[in-house]
Amino acid sequence: MRVDLFDFDLPAERIALRPASPRDSARMLVVDQDGMADRIIRDLPDILRPDDLLVFNDTRVIPAQLEGRRGEARIGATLHKREGPRAWRAFVRNAKRVRDGDRIEFGAGVTALAASRGDDGSILLEFDGDEPVELLLERAGRMPLPPYIAGKRAADERDADDYQTMFAAEPGAVAAPTAALHFTPDLMAALDARGIGHVTLTLHVGAGTFLPVKAEDTDDHRMHAEYGRIDAATADRLNAVRRAGGRVIAVGTTSLRLIESAAGEDGIIRPFDGDTAIFITPGYRFRGIDGLMTNFHLPKSTLFMLVSALMGRERMQAAYAHAIADGYRFYSYGDGSLLLP
């Protein structure tokens, strides 16, 4: 499909620079077969049904942005995918000043070898020393805010908490699964009391999630792979809920993409441990989920294509037009939507 079919105009003032406080006070646009309704996140227990199951991504964002030097050249690196115990694939600013075999100094005693360059222009960084890379990043790295926020303000101490979900447990993401940022312990208690369950899976979100689609046709776009894991107990729970007539509601496009990667043509979700580069566009037949909670996405992005595949492109264009006109806040720190096809 033509990528420009997924374009829309978004005023800059609609981009949220801080999350709602408290988190579950954010607005939520509900889109279903009956139309659209303006609600708030903490209404969720009244909207979902008992025996529905929410699926959260328990990845934890690491301080994946580094600033360093190679000689006199200033180098910026955003890690996006782990390739080994001490090796990370990174998108590098000023990459033309880095050659294979160069050593980059990131400060605080953290150095890395530029080992090789990928077809996508990324560079494989091999970190020196014996300390776990996570400890090195805690010393030298900073929280990797999305470019549409980082271009307007610097990351600060608040972001260390604001940009982690309450489910964050497995370090490895360089972007938050932002739909889950809206959830609080009080909201989870209300959902539990209503009989709405939840499970977690892990998908380490990569920096590729922020990359624009440069191709003119979706067939020519290449997705970056991300590592994900669904264990056998979680897969069994997802299948049991659907067999009993409940709905599996993915919280975030990351949870959805991993479930769909693990689901077979028969609709059975199986354990999964590996990379996924699934790219969902209109025409895709969903096999493992029955609904999606997600924030509002970039024009012409793979994620707007995904929600258009779930709900229909014209319906999502109308929903986004309503959200823009009605003052909804967009992107990672913005408001949410509940999409029930």
Results as ranks from 00 to 15, higher is better:
L191R: 06
T218S: 02
T218R: 12
L125I: 00
G172S: 10
R237N: 00
Q164A: 03
A193P: 00
F56H: 02
E134R: 14
D192W: 05
D120T: 12
G291Q: 09
L340W: 04
R158N: 13
K152W: 04
D32L: 04
G101H: 05
Q164H: 00
G327N: 10
P185S: 02
F6I: 08
K96A: 14
D335F: 11
D32Q: 02
A189W: 01
H322K: 02
V213C: 01
D4M: 13
D58N: 15
F210L: 12
I268Y: 02
D46F: 05
D24R: 05
A26R: 05
G274E: 13
A250C: 11
D100A: 14
K152L: 09
A179N: 11
V31D: 07
A16E: 03
D32V: 10
F106N: 01
D162K: 07
L10V: 13
L48P: 08
M143S: 06
T218M: 06
D24M: 05
D186T: 03
E126C: 11
G252L: 12
E265N: 09
A262C: 09
G71C: 12
D162V: 04
L5T: 00
A77F: 06
L53M: 02
I280A: 10
V3C: 04
A95Y: 04
R103M: 01
R257K: 05
R42N: 14
R242V: 02
F272T: 05
F183N: 07
A235F: 06
R82T: 09
M223Q: 05
D43W: 14
I75F: 06
A309I: 05
A155Q: 06
G197C: 00
A277L: 00
E83I: 00
A233G: 03
K214G: 14
D335Q: 09
M223A: 04
L238W: 00
G129W: 01
P132I: 01
R237A: 07
S337Y: 10
G141P: 04
G68K: 12
A155D: 04
R97K: 15
D120I: 09
R93T: 13
R287N: 04
A193C: 03
R229E: 15
D7G: 11
P171S: 04
P271D: 12
Q317S: 05
I40R: 15
N94T: 07
D156I: 01
M166A: 10
A77N: 08
R39M: 09
E170T: 14
S337K: 10
I196V: 13
R139Y: 03
E134T: 11
F8H: 10
G246H: 01
N295E: 13
A325Q: 07
L44K: 13
E72P: 14
L211R: 15
V133S: 02
I104Q: 00
L29S: 02
A115D: 09
R82S: 14
A77H: 09
R60M: 14
R42L: 12
K81P: 06
T254Q: 13
D7T: 11
H204D: 01
A160T: 05
